[in-house]
Design a binder for these strands. Structure first.
Lengths: 233, 233
DNA sequence: CGCTAATTTGAGTGACTTCAAGCACAGTGG
DNA sequence: CCACTGTGCTTGAAGTCACTCAAATTAGCG
């Protein structure tokens, strides 16, 4: 984590299509912009730890952050990934609880830190902003509930196919159909909620079924309808 | 579902300790009170169905509501139960999505329906209410994330013990340590995310280990520390 | 410095075990 | 009498363990 030569302004993010702050008045935006702190984080850095008290939330300007919980015997369960335009840490700030997840950088990232006071003052003064924030939380809640159902009812095979499709939606494919997020097999397993070996076996099964192709951590999704069928989705 | 002779007023609920509307002005409370519709629902009634558009949310005045999703091949996954003081349906209203769960009465209930317009007007005019609502959603999100981790990492045995403890927290025990919510084995299975037979077997195992006692659907929790140990919790 | 040597980390495989699901069927009690 | 509970048995999916191999890092040292 270090400081930056060029600190991205909130105006820039807004111009690039960042949704959350759309309804802010120019004055409000200026307050957020002046109150924020912006840093570069390298792969492996921890933004906050499960159990920490956080006194603000983070806006992701660049990079990818992995949000996970640590279960008994230290096994990670990945809850979601955050990328450009996403915010992290707001749940704990709003609920005034300790962080219930850890946030770790997996692709070098630039994050802006916005202190709680600014967040609460926006909520107090700008109802349109409040509603946006609520919608964000409620959508996330809907996704969590979907995931509970999947993990409880689907097989590992179905879940892995689904996760690959979900990653595609969030991080897209390049021209060679390669998934634009690089995860270790262990991280994939920690998303799906299974053992690393199972992921390895299933991935090579998918490969021999010509659904995907593998080159190290690069995964290309060749047959998306086929994957959807497996995910029953 | 039928109308009531005695419609509970919002003032009554507030006086009984209902948290959500604490910060409302008397005028705001009056608007909510006059705008609401209140009905009696019998066991088995569906309040709303997954996929429905809901144009308001419900306040639970009495009874117990089961909130669940339907997975592939029709298996239910219970997300939570709502009882006195809880609200249901607000997620879909706020996120402006279709309902992602079904709400079904399992103990005869009285519900007040508050139309979306009233909800949004409160959010617009009363920041303290907004914050309360956000905290509610964020807490729920935190719980969902916990549950994802548990279901992905713990065994059925551990999860069943944990669910029993969770039910105790939410619905209490009576003087004979009997859990004050009556669920079928199938419903328990649909919470834990397992098969009915597995729940039956594990319950009788818990019974012979003197952790619980069973009399039909009445479950008494005899050894709470023991259950906590099993739940590793 | 440069160039091995040593260590770590991740991917992959095979053998074995076990948990829990599924099926079939027998009670039981409201 | 039908929905719910309970039991025995079987099977399969997936976890665990133990290992190899390759690549990437780090250390060591002339």
């Amino acid at each position: 984590m270090k400081n930056l030569q060029h600190v991205p302004t909130c105006e820039e993010c807004l111009a690039n299509g960042h949704e959350l702050f759309k309804d802010l008045t120019p004055e409000e935006l200026e307050i957020v912009n002046n109150g924020k702190g912006c840093s570069l984080y390298k792969r492996g850095n921890i933004i906050y730890h499960e159990g920490n008290r956080i006194n603000g939330f983070y806006c992701v300007n660049r990079g990818i952050i992995k949000i996970y919980k640590t279960g008994i015997d230290g096994k990670e369960q990945i809850i979601r990934f955050a990328k450009w335009g996403d915010i992290i840490g707001f749940r704990s700030v709003l609920s005034k609880e300790l962080a219930c997840t850890t946030a770790k950088v997996i692709d070098d990232a630039i994050l802006c830190f916005i202190p709680s006071e600014n967040l609460f003052s926006l909520v107090k003064n700008n109802p349109a902003f409040s509603i946006r924030l609520m919608q964000l939380t409620c959508r996330e809640l809907g996704e969590s509930n979907n995931f509970i159902t999947d993990i409880a009812q689907k097989t590992v095979r179905e879940r892995l196919a689904e996760i690959l499709l979900l990653l595609m939606e969030n991080f897209n494919l390049d021209d060679d159909k390669v998934l634009q997020i690089s995860l270790t097999r262990e991280e994939l397993a920690n998303m799906v909620g299974t053992a690393t070996e199972s992921v390895i076996r299933l991935l090579s099964e998918f490969k021999s079924d010509r659904l995907i192709d593998l080159h190290g951590r690069k995964i290309s999704l060749l047959d998306i309808p086929g994957l959807k069928k497996i995910a029953s989705f």
